[in-house]
Simulated assay, not measured.
Amino acid sequence: MAATGSTNDDVAALARAGEAEGFWLRAETQTGGRGRHGRNWQSPVGNLFTSTIIRRQTGEPPAASLAMVAALALHQVAVAYGGGGRVRLKWPNDVLLDGAKLSGILLEAVDDAVVIGFGVNLAHRPENLDRETASFAHAGLGAPDPAAFLSDLADALAYWLGRWRGEGLGVILREWRARAHAVGTPLRTTGADGHQIEGLFEGLDDDGALKLRLADGTIHILHAGDVFLI
């Protein structure tokens, strides 16, 4: 579609109405796009704005780990579109290009489904944010066609979703770690209460939570919050 308020809102309504897993919706632009915690998401024409539906099944890993499944899928496509080794993951689902934020991934529970929204900076990158941002065009990689990029993203998500269901969370965490910034990377975390903690990236625990080594050598476990590279 040409424009909408939010692809996540549209797809959530379709999920409640019974739309099947695998449905994707793409908009050229959004008037009410949002990121985590309701933050405004800039939506200029030329970038990718899309959402899809995952139907929960018995015996699956925790729904929250779909954030890493989505990140692996987007990482795969970003690498294929020229990013190569310049693309890395940051907990839990940020895809970085040259260390700067390339995308946003928003998961929202809707009854027995999870709606996953992707905003990917293809032609444009937002400015005046609290972190560095990147786009394919700004990085000298050209601006991919949003429709073609979506087709490849849908295939990649289906692949990683199949591995998540068939092989379990352990393989997803292992593959995520292999694509993340190095152990020992300095990070700053901000919890829901605004409290900030600085430390070194120590990897993930068995549930996918972030492990942060503090200055005194203790390990802090973060289950939710914002993470920034220092």
Rank of each mutant, 00 (worst) to 15 (best):
D10G: 13
E28T: 10
L107M: 14
G84I: 04
G59C: 06
R86N: 00
F49D: 04
G142S: 09
G82A: 14
L89R: 05
H181N: 11
D145V: 12
W41K: 06
D226F: 04
P186H: 13
N93Q: 03
G203P: 14
A12E: 00
A158M: 06
E19T: 06
L72C: 04
S51E: 05
G85A: 12
H195S: 15
W41I: 08
A109Y: 06
T50W: 05
Q76I: 01
E167F: 09
A154L: 04
G85P: 00
I105P: 02
R26P: 00
E19C: 11
I53S: 00
Q42F: 03
L200N: 12
P126F: 07
A113F: 00
V114A: 02
I221W: 11
T190K: 08
A215I: 09
S6Q: 09
V77K: 05
W91R: 09
M68I: 03
H181E: 10
D145W: 14
P61M: 14
A137C: 12
L102K: 11
S151W: 08
H124F: 13
D205Q: 13
D207H: 15
E175G: 05
R163F: 05
H75G: 07
T189E: 03
L74C: 11
N93G: 01
G35N: 03
L200I: 04
I54R: 10
N40H: 15
N93I: 04
L122V: 08
R34D: 06
D226M: 03
R125E: 15
R86W: 00
N40I: 14
T189C: 12
L214N: 01
A70M: 04
Q196T: 14
I172K: 02
L89N: 02
D145R: 11
T218M: 07
A15L: 08
L25W: 12
A147N: 05
G168H: 09
R34A: 09
H75K: 10
E28G: 15
H181F: 12
D216C: 10
V87N: 00
G33N: 08
H223P: 11
I172N: 07
E132A: 15
N93F: 01
F136G: 00
A139Y: 11
G117V: 01
G119K: 04
P61K: 13
L187Y: 05
A64W: 02
A148H: 10
L141S: 06
A15I: 05
N47Y: 08
T4D: 01
G32I: 01
R174A: 12
R213M: 06
G166R: 12
A182R: 14
Q30N: 07
L48K: 01
A17T: 07
W41E: 02
W176V: 03
P126V: 08
A137R: 15
G84F: 04
P186A: 10
A20S: 07
G217M: 02
F49K: 10
A2R: 14
I54L: 12
F228E: 15
